[in-house]
Design a binder for these strands. Structure first.
Length: 160
DNA sequence: GCCAACGTTGGC
DNA sequence: GCCAACGTTGGC
């Protein structure tokens, strides 16, 4: 079986909740990506994300909203414990311990972009015309990104 | 704070 | 299974 090609993703986070700086400050620059409560986003994490995949880190609901860094998948999908924690805002009373509904992955910071790439800048880049993030009404907090889009984002930020 | 877009819930 | 009501996301 040929080795699987590295795939690319984008995750959204409100920096007031968890920022790229928070990720850099985390032990091993790594965090578990808990709290995802959307089936499509879950399926992308569970069925798509593999160790070594690269992930754009996007700050949403902030001024300006922007892609600020790159991280990588260092652990593949496993049950998100917050779904069973009554005190957690992510508690899901319908999820069963023997059949968890929600999963998370572990992400490790790879690099901060030299400059944040704002939504407006992303929109003005022809190479990114098809990006899910830029679709009207796009709300998915975990999205696939093509290799070309990923390279274009890094290039726009002045990397290599 | 507004509101468009979208996902989820629940009555039928 | 339909669909209206409701809740959430997230740009502006």
């Amino acid at each position: 079986m040929p080795p699987r090609k590295r795939q690319y993703w984008l995750v959204k986070s409100e920096p007031s909740t968890f920022s790229f700086d928070d990720l850099l400050a985390s032990p091993g620059r790594t965090t578990c990506w808990d709290g995802v409560r959307n089936y499509q986003a879950r399926n992308l994490m569970r069925d798509g994300m593999r160790i070594g995949d690269r992930v754009l880190f996007y700050h949403s609901s902030t001024e300006p909203a922007a892609v600020v860094g790159v991280c990588e998948v260092v652990r593949e999908a496993y049950p998100d414990p917050t779904q069973f924690d009554r005190r957690s805002e992510y508690f899901d009373p319908k999820s069963r311990a023997d059949e968890p509904t929600w999963v998370m992955v572990d992400l490790r910071a790879v690099e901060r972009l030299p400059v944040p790439l704002t939504l407006a800048e992303l929109r003005s880049a022809p190479a990114l015309a098809g990006m899910e993030l830029l679709r009207r009404g796009s709300r998915l907090s975990v999205q696939p990104v093509t290799a070309e889009q990923f390279a274009a984002v890094r290039g726009l930020a002045g990397l290599r």
